[in-house]
Amino acid sequence: MRLEVEIASKTFKSAAGELHDVIAGVAFALNAGEVGVLVGPSGCGKSTTLRILAGLDPDFQGRVSRPTGARIGFVFQEPRLLPWRSVEENVRLAAPLADESKLSALFEILELKAHRNHFPGELSLGLARRVALARAFAVEPELLILDEPLASLDTALASRLRDEIAMLVDGRSVITLLVTHDVDDAVRLGDRVILLSPRPARVLADLPIRTPRSARGEVEIAAIKSEITRRIDHCPTK
């Protein structure tokens, strides 16, 4: 099982009718069990890339090959829950086949047990993001896509959620793709960090991290981070 992405170009027409180049060449491949992280400046086309490879935007030049009929779990930047359905119903609707024991385990890990019957409007943003994570994991996806799942959360909560994501991803043979602009998150979660240039997006570097997630020490993390920062700073400007 393998995800191969080759987006040669993607243009976007604004409401005023002007054409904007969003992507100018993004290509990478991920194997099952691998966590790829797209890192790039804000507005560089990361979310657009995700939408294309989830099949939500067919209007681009290039090719995306993902396992046919692959179940997709998508955590959008905003939680995108159905406000008129309870937390549990939101998860069950996406994953009608998930059994009770699996769901309880998931709610337990994400600390959502007390909120099963709440409506999304009654949750904080942090809780709503966790429901979105629960929904994506409940479908037991073959392709898991996370679009800045930790943005706008306080550091303590973000680092806890990051550990939870790592725990959920480990031990599943799933292709995971995470988008973030936080280098720390990228290095702690990823097996492969793909650096993107400012808009229109190109791949600046494709850096594999060989040490398993759990074995990465702080020294090594700092070293990889400084390597990434160096690459970003030396990005060839057009």
Partner: peptide, 21 residues
Amino acid sequence: AALDEMATVFALPHWSRFRHV
């Protein structure tokens, strides 16, 4: 449209999409 995309990505069946989304 955002909820529509969610329903598409999670491959909600037609009936469930109509009733719940």
